[in-house]
Computed example of a mutant assay.
Amino acid sequence: MALNGYKVFVDPGHGGKDPGAVGGGYTEAAIVLDIGKFLKTELEKLGATVQMSRSTDTYPENPDRAKASNNFGADIYVSLHINAGGGTGIETWIHDNASSYTTSLANAVNNALVAALGKTNRGVKKAPSQRGGTNIHVIDPKNTKAWAILPEMLFIDTASDRNTLVANKQTCARAIANGINSFAMTLPPI
């Protein structure tokens, strides 16, 4: 199994006081928590050691999420999010100072999600380091030592995207795990 020896930190975004994006009676925080739990199981099946930033409806501050990942010694950090703003499709964010390994990881996960869900590929996007805001904190290599990606899985405020997402949480998790696994297969064994 390609993920033997790898530590993956799974970070379901938002939670607790912060529901994240909302649409159709659903919250981003609740959906990504479900996907995160499935993802932990899928990654463990592939041999990874997994830690989650949260396993209940709580809100760890972003610096605490990054610190927990660093303390765990994570190789890979996956911050799970759902988009909003009336679009459609899947995109994955990395920091503009991210390594080429992080770019390869993001491409592998993004492509696996697009293939599994059959939705528009919005591609891998780089968050500029000068941009403010908290979401970028966990993917900034200054804060998180692991290769850190932030998949935005579909749009919660677009009905067709939301329906696909709600019906396919486990499919999302499996796609992310498979993307991580295929990325790990391109690396020398650890």
Rank of each mutant, 00 (worst) to 15 (best):
G123Q: 02
S104Y: 05
G118R: 08
A106S: 14
A148W: 12
N110G: 00
K145R: 15
S104F: 01
W93R: 13
N135K: 07
G123I: 01
R122V: 04
S104Q: 14
A116P: 04
R122I: 02
K142A: 14
G85C: 03
A148H: 12
H95N: 15
T120W: 01
P141C: 08
I139D: 03
V109G: 06
A84M: 04
L150C: 04
P128R: 14
K119I: 00
H95R: 12
A98S: 15
A115E: 07
D140A: 14
S99I: 11
E91T: 04
T88G: 01
T92V: 08
P128G: 12
A108R: 09
G123T: 01
N107M: 00
H137L: 13
T102A: 09
A112Q: 08
L154V: 01
S129I: 14
T144D: 13
H95I: 09
N83F: 00
V114D: 00
L113Q: 04
A112L: 02
F155V: 03
K145H: 13
I149W: 07
W93A: 09
T88H: 00
L117S: 09
R131W: 05
G123S: 07
N135Q: 11
G87F: 02
I82V: 15
G132M: 06
N97Q: 15
A106C: 11
K126T: 10
V114C: 03
P141A: 02
